[in-house]
Design a protein around this nucleic acid. Structure first.
Lengths: 330, 330
DNA sequence: AAAGATGTGACAAACGTTTGCAAATGACAG
DNA sequence: CTGTCATTTGCAAACGTTTGTCACATCTTT
């Protein structure tokens, strides 16, 4: 079928080990033979077979990345950080999208290991499951944005602090009845954000009203539904802290189509600072996460872990979020 | 290191060919041995090595997908169609993002072939280059959304017709000085859209003013720059047809921040119908492309081509776009 | 001119599978 | 009790590489 190292050897009348050495810039071949080999390889259109190579070298220079949703540009930007850093380090990224589906996530975890990737970066769709993976995954892996470390490396942001800052800001701006429109209740990230929100309220001795804390999906649709629910009771809600920017978008959708004036009548605060938060038509006030850096650090730690081999020690990196004020809060 | 088929064989005292047959549901082993093998494999945590397997079977059940930009949700949705259809058919997708960089594109093309993917779906960053690939790619591949077929399969949309419909609609709505804010001049897709625009104008005997047809990137920034240029001359432009929705977003950005009233004073028309075109804050009138289907058909054709082997015959699928009226046109 | 040092290239094993073929086993009929 | 099957199992080659070891030339050095 395709040209192999042996074909080159035969055509040049030398042994194929010499061809291999020539092509890999290994010592042990004269520069003259090396040149002949390289020319012949190009002429014959030789493409090394990474499977054969991987088989003997026991490494693939490939790392697997599993994320729930690429349409959410939060993950898009993180992924960008991962891929660029990977390429700079000579790794290729095998990107897997689970669509928030745990079955698919497990499937990918298996596939990646069968492909013998050198390491895995995982954002699980369900933080609870992560501890189980300890036994199932036997390559270096690192958890992204979820519950820190069950004996594995971790990169994430200080979610609790982020929503604490955000809630404090809303209070400072004079909002009094602040609701929380959360994502999945199963999400550790989400619950951390709720914690920060509660913490800020308690600090000001404001009683926590459980009915103001609702959960749905991390989607615009989820936000729309929660907004509808929150704005149609007698609670006089004057601000909604959304679990993330996508949710906030759904909240804004409901609010603008139902004539709530923003930011006077209703303040809206997001979390993530994805790229359309700053579109002039949207101008969402939000908590900024360093997304590209998240990906970059994840990959860098992973590579450290890979190089360290069996006796790797796990690390956690927690980055600090910050408030970005735009037009959806007064 | 990790458990192999030989370890299982040794531990069970049988030959490793039997283990292989048992694990692959091949005939030639008694159901009793099969059961013992499967149990032992699970117990030992056996994970087949896809590289070794791929080496002998000469197939990887993996297809490579190369796209310029995942942040552009047009590609995001197409990719979704590809990945889901692939999984349904037992294939895994190796996703590669080039960032509109031809160097990276070529690099990935090489990498994918070294990994011996069974086929490739390619959206090139520069349609011109595609004809060159004929010799460089020696696995089945299919071009996505660009110039149809140089002897390879193709899936795309009728761009010319799309912009023809769009321009006609703008005229019908009473817009008279319609400019075109295009993406890359190197893009065949882009030029087809320009053609459709010109065609519609000519049909109405409106003279073509070259100064109203400008090019930049397929980015929001590009759109912003072009809008600035188009709206600051004496041409009295009353509508801008953007090369795609992302460009349109940039146009809207400029227009709203510079007090053009939309849609009265300025009509804006996009192309693609990506998801935020329908956000209530945006409500962009645009030409809809069946994105998911584009990806789905691309994959299906590719699989056909793979199965057909050497004597595959190339196919082209051209889908029809349609107009979606929202609020950026009167 | 003999001995050692050096550089070049060939040979073969190994990586973890699949699979064609041969061998062993057992059942059953003649 | 032998011969003929069918079934189950084992052996070994193959896939395309990398790499340790060894043999051979060639070139110094004394």
């Amino acid at each position: 079928m395709s040209v192999t190292i042996k074909d080159i050897a035969k055509s040049l009348g030398i042994s194929y080990s010499s061809v291999s050495r020539a092509l890999n810039n290994k010592p042990g071949v004269s520069s003259e033979t090396r040149k002949r080999v390289i020319d012949e390889a190009k002429k014959m259109g030789y493409k090394p077979n990474d499977m054969a190579r991987g088989l003997v070298k026991k490494q693939t220079n490939t790392i697997g990345v599993i994320i729930p949703d690429i349409a959410n540009s939060f993950f898009g930007e993180v992924t960008e950080g991962i891929i660029e850093t990977a390429n700079e380090n000579g790794y290729t990224v095998f990107l897997c999208i689970t669509n928030w589906n745990m079955e698919i996530e497990k499937e990918y975890l298996r596939t990646l290991q069968q492909k013998r990737v050198d390491g895995i970066i995982l954002k699980s769709s369900k933080d609870q499951e992560e501890r189980r993976y300890k036994d199932e995954i036997n390559v270096p892996y690192i958890l992204l944005e979820g519950r820190p470390a069950y004996g594995n490396s971790f990169v994430g942001v200080n979610n609790k602090r982020g929503s604490y800052i955000g809630t404090k800001y809303l209070l400072k701006q004079g909002y009094r009845n602040i609701a929380f429109a959360g994502g999945s209740k199963d999400s550790y990230t989400n619950m951390q954000r709720v914690q920060g929100y509660i913490h800020a309220l308690k600090e000001r001795a404001i009683p926590i009203d459980k009915e103001l804390i609702l959960y749905n999906d991390f989607t615009a649709k989820g936000g729309y539904i929660l907004a509808e629910e929150l704005l149609n009771n007698d609670k006089n809600i004057d601000a909604i802290f959304a679990g993330n920017d996508v949710i906030a978008l759904g909240v804004l959708d409901y609010a603008t189509t139902h004539d709530f004036s923003i930011p006077e009548e209703l303040g809206v605060l997001g979390f993530d600072d994805i790229f359309y938060a700053e579109l002039p038509q949207i101008q969402l006030t939000t908590i900024h996460q360093p997304k590209y850096e998240l990906g970059k650090y994840a990959l860098e730690i992973l590579i450290d872990d890979i190089h360290a081999g069996e006796d790797r020690t796990c690390k956690s990196i927690i980055l600090e979020p910050k408030l970005v004020v735009r037009n959806t809060t007064r």
